[in-house]
Design a binder for these strands. Structure first.
Lengths: 190, 190
DNA sequence: GCTGCGATGCGACCAAATGTCACAGGGCCA
DNA sequence: TGGCCCTGTGACATTTGGTCGCATCGCAGC
């Protein structure tokens, strides 16, 4: 409940390893990632929801955080805001299966240092955690978005403008709420 | 939030209007946008390339900037870095036809305050220019642009880029030729 | 507490859009 | 003339979308 596990065991995590909070509602993925990140030298504190993460971070804000966006309860974006409020030095990386331009922009503006789409392996995450400054040499896309992808991005944008209110977004888009729900439940098109 | 009032009905730009640099290599779009933004109270300086924009901005960095990403020569990302270096107060909005999560992340990290995908109308741009960094305030968009219209415009744009070649366009859009044909034969605009 | 309101998640049913295969004709070029 | 690619269209199976309904939940106000 209070300070995250900091055992003195020789084979377990060590005090001098950087603390990392891992937030994802997928138990399997969380376990796998926690193990992989621990093996790479992080003192990992797992959390299954934004609320739990905040509770765990309050007494001891982590140096690093890897957060999912789509979770039951408070969203990852709100979690980012909370973590930054607790300690603006925390290096936060977003990891989501529902990547979109709209949420990426919001996450970075809120203070995340990088934004990754699932699936991402531990090495990519570690690399992202180490990044900081903007890189103007990022390759530009040379093909236009597919129609489906464009629709996905547009929906995400409008949804963000409506604070995630699905009913309201559906009305604004002149689309049936049921239809919007179905589209949102799917992963972004390639 | 200091978006100028559009109540001015003057015939030409005035010196006290906020300066805005508009950078896009598409002459038609640039002209149209320049006119639309001027009408909304900005003192618009158009530029067709990053290099030209930098040259124009050096003596007098603009208060606002709207930049395309994909341009011959230096990319919009490099331009953002240059503009921020000249004056970090400049409020930069990215407007691109080749949106991607990766470039969105980099643009924001470099200092852009928003990232829009074409097609975007002048009102959306003005709205984006007015948003402040990290501020989650919801300016309440008024015209969410229907999904179908968005799709139509996008298809037309890509079709034009492929010289009206339907098969080629269908491949670029990752959609079946039959489907594209059906869409083209139906919807006029609406 | 209770009550109404709006949001949400989800099942079910049927209509509409789309993916897929197929075939015929046209323009181009070596 | 034989490839090659584009185009228009028909037919049919599959997928997606529109619509209705209902149970649940959170919240303001009584």
């Amino acid at each position: 409940m209070n300070v995250p596990a900091k055992t003195e065991s020789a084979v377990s995590t060590a005090d001098d390893w950087p603390s990392l909070m891992l937030v994802d509602d997928d138990n399997d993925l969380r376990d796998v990632l926690a193990r992989a990140l621990t093996r790479r030298g992080f003192n990992v504190t797992p959390a299954a929801s934004a609320e739990q993460a905040i509770a765990l971070a309050r007494p001891a804000p982590p140096e690093y955080a890897v957060v999912d966006l789509k979770m039951p309860g408070a969203s990852g974006l709100e979690l980012i805001r909370a973590l930054v409020a607790l300690d603006e030095q925390t290096r936060i990386v977003v990891l989501t299966g529902y990547a979109s331009v709209a949420t990426a922009v919001e996450a970075i503006k809120l203070g995340a240092i990088h934004y990754l789409a699932k699936p991402a392996n531990a090495d990519e995450i570690v690399l992202a955690l180490g990044r900081s400054t903007g890189d103007a040499s990022v390759p530009l896309a040379d093909t236009p978005l597919s129609v489906n992808r464009l629709e996905w991005e547009h929906i995400q944008k409008v949804l963000a403008e409506h604070d995630g209110n699905i009913s309201s977004t559906a009305r604004a888009l002149h689309m049936h709420r049921r239809t919007l729900q179905r589209k949102l439940s799917k992963h972004p098109p390639g």
